[in-house]
Design a binder for these strands. Structure first.
Lengths: 196, 196, 196, 196
DNA sequence: AGCTAAACGAGACGGTACGTCGCGTCTTAAT
DNA sequence: ATTAAGACGCGACGTACCGTCTCGTTTAGCT
């Protein structure tokens, strides 16, 4: 059995060239022009090499985005929850701006077509969500949030505005808008009564 | 010059067949199989006819979705804001379930590729948003929400969770989850202090 | 059932452009460069159009050769069998010269790889062989050949030298060589004793 | 400079495995499946090894065929020219049967695409042709053929029928057909008058 | 009611990208 | 240094849809 190639023989040069090219094509030519052939040509790599190591162009892009966004996994803790959340959300917004040429936006869009990519994207999100929850738990211990605050609700409400805007191309929220939404969400989490 | 066809001569039969076929293909075969050719074949219509009346397959789908979701424009007013919002959001969730074959989800996904479709989608959303804002203003007059509540924040926070889930295929929220998020948002809107 | 396209809708322009391009590419670039893509590009035609109407590149070439060699079907009858056979064989030799860029040689070579093409080639040869046999029968009636002369042997011996040379790239026979072989064959047919 | 490898270091095991595999793949899977990769896999040899020692897959096949047909170089001399020629031709026919999987037929077909292989094939044929001519010269000395018989004509006419059949897939001649053609050719060579 | 111009079905067309195959070159590790 | 293994850049393969374009054939609106 030899269905999957031997990773030991993999060319690091080709791998990096492909990931770079994927980001470059997306940034320069937009999502629509982002084809396997364009990536291959820009990377100076054969299509075969791409297909050997990635199942789809979405997977290439996901890898590329993941490589270029490792910082997002860790959540700062300045002691000011609102400030930390704003920093994090503004980083995400920056990655999604401009929406038409954002590799991350492209991955998300592609995931709507490819269930397999959606799965991979979700897997890749998991550590970030854990970082998020950890930060929130620290806030709970610090007394910034009540102990009973629902972290699932928090995740949806903190991140929801960004993806609501993304879905309908309403334009990404600016820093002020982020701030007001963060404040609302923190207020909600503090006000919520689990005994309702 | 006769670049645009005469709408008076338009075949209603063909129009309905196309819209039905678009929904049917999306539901039966999923987003990936949703091509103009598949719609044309299923509708028993020539591709030319589709291209004569719609600029793209996304536009067909948007029309089809709009036709099948006219009820969403108007917001109920039972006097209970939380209940009304839950009803509305549950309707949206129902339209997006299952995500893989939801025509609305497909339109949103397609809009990520086609800026023109994104524009059309936004235009088509406007009356719904106005309905939403109207309902919220009634809530303000009824004293359910403070007069200074930010309707933009409200829109993002009420709808955000759905599209956050959609983007990453986290699974649509169930009724209970909707309820808890709606409650949080209403609490946030009540708690927020504009003088901050 | 609609596996084969409707010939009534076929574009004559495209058909001729393809056949011309096939011959041109073969003549200009040689057999090795003769690809479907090269033909399509030269013809200003999409690959799909070629695949719609021909099963393989060999079939295209066979059609092109057949169109350009209709004259070979009919055998002259000047009353001089040797002269007529030489004329015919020299025509064939001309079609096979130079061997490296001869479309007919290419068809024959391709037929070695594609049994289906070999069949088509044989079918397309049949009327020529009938013309050959008819000419020989006239020679028999004219007393130029004995009545018992074996036409199968005649076919093999008249044409054999050309294809022997072709197979091993010995160089096509010139007119003098053709003449001597024709004379030998006629002598053989006259000398043969069926009662052996 | 070390462009050519050192033959002394050549692995005889690999060499034989490659030649065997070439014949085996040709016989088992036919000409179309006969690729360098298939040979390498079947031989348990790396592609690099093949490319180190042979310029092309045709060359491999030619070597393989030559190794397996050394007997054809020498012409028997039983004193009966017709019988000896029939024996020789029947041997060739046997090598070309069945045509679709005959390695020799494959070499000839391949030589139509690769001029370099055609040259090598011709070179490899030379000793056989010399054997042929020698046999014919003995026939001349024995009085079986006239002294002025044209050996070039003889070569074309004796071998021509086989390659005529091969080119058009008419089916190889059986022993009886070989016999009748040989008899005709001998008759022609005896009848020909060089003073014509 | 008949005429005529459009919209219609069908589907061929020139393209672009797809995902695959085999080529001939190359790199690596193990004899 | 040659070998087995196999990744690599390359280019052609045959396919799928795209959006455009004829074709006859309805069919709707005007005479």
């Amino acid at each position: 059995m030899a269905s999957t190639p031997d990773p030991a023989r993999r060319s690091e040069r080709a791998r990096l060239a492909v990931l770079d090219a994927a980001l470059a094509v997306c940034r320069d030519n937009g999502f629509a022009q982002l084809t396997i052939e364009a990536i291959a040509e820009r990377a100076g790599v054969s299509k075969k090499t791409i297909y050997r190591w990635w199942p789809s162009k979405g997977a290439v892009l996901l890898d590329a985005v993941a490589d270029s966004a490792t910082t997002l996994v860790t959540y700062e803790d300045t002691g000011d929850l609102a400030r930390d959340m704003c920093a994090q959300l503004n980083s995400v917004v920056a990655m999604l701006t401009p929406q038409e040429t954002s590799p991350l936006a492209a991955v998300i869009a592609e995931a709507q077509r490819e269930p397999a990519l959606a799965q991979a994207l979700r897997d890749q999100m998991r550590p970030r969500i854990e970082g998020f929850e950890e930060r929130l738990r620290r806030a709970q211990h610090a007394g910034d949030l009540p102990a009973h605050a629902d972290l699932g609700v928090a995740l949806d409400l903190f991140y929801g505005p960004i993806y609501h805007r993304l879905a309908f191309h309403f334009g990404m929220p600016d820093e002020e808008e982020i701030r007001s939404r963060v404040d609302h969400v923190i207020a909600a989490l503090r006000a919520a009564d689990p005994a309702r």
